[in-house]
């Protein structure tokens, strides 16, 4: 089985937000929930770089470790998913996540956030693959259809890579060798405890 990862090549990313709206459109993610977002470092200055970030599907995922109801699980593809049926919206995974991935709908009164939502790597949730119940809670399950995450597939400049970690690392390495520069595999060390050295 593949070890799925994301890699945003910041030297390609132009902050076009295709990844963001593709995700919204694919999964009907409501206003205010941002499974993916694009952050620009050094905005407006030389050296400006944008990075598209979502759940990185960490190795030894912090979110899973702190969840008081233990509702996370990791698939055979190393995708970190959770059950909205079990989530109590406590917010702990958000404190633990190094990438700000978990999102909460504001429901009800103070403190009671709704069920946590985050990037599923377009792999749905615990329900039967591609069932309406799965769609309603987690969005489409592209992985089950043999497709990859829509955010990466639609990335305007092919900055955002998704797929088996070893494969995307190779693509990135080749790019850096060819062009002679690279700002790094953003988030890899923190998420996967490894990085790509070129």
């Amino acid at each position: 089985m593949a070890r799925m990862k994301f890699l945003c090549d910041a030297d390609r990313c132009i902050e076009c937000n295709a990844c963001v709206t593709a995700c919204k459109n694919e999964h009907e993610v409501p206003w205010g929930i941002n499974r993916r977002r694009v952050v620009t470092i050094n905005d407006g200055k030389p050296g400006e770089r944008s990075v598209s970030m979502a759940c990185m599907h960490c190795t030894d995922a912090p979110c899973a470790a702190v969840c008081p109801v233990d509702c996370f699980y990791t698939t055979a593809d190393a995708v970190v998913l959770h059950s909205k049926d079990l989530c109590i919206g406590c917010g702990y995974c958000f404190y633990a996540c190094p990438f700000g991935a978990p999102q909460y709908p504001k429901v009800g009164n103070f403190g009671s956030r709704g069920k946590m939502d985050k990037c599923t790597y377009c792999a749905g949730g615990p329900e039967a693959d591609n069932s309406s119940a799965e769609y309603a809670k987690y969005g489409a399950n592209r992985l089950a259809e043999g497709k990859l995450p829509i955010c990466a597939e639609m990335c305007s400049t092919k900055a955002l890579l998704a797929g088996d970690g070893a494969m995307i690392a190779t693509i990135y390495k080749e790019r850096v060798l060819k062009r002679g520069y690279g700002s790094g595999a953003w988030g890899w060390k923190v998420a996967y405890k490894e990085t790509i050295t070129v």
């Binding site: 076009c16 295709a18 990844c19 593709a22 459109n25 597939e153 639609m154 305007s156 400049t157 092919k158």
Partner: peptide, 25 residues
Amino acid sequence: VGQEPGWDSPINRGTHCAKGASVRE
């Protein structure tokens, strides 16, 4: 119901920007 990448187009090879990725709206 959904939008898929147009891989075969030599112009965009499946990709879009924010606007194109949300035209279904």
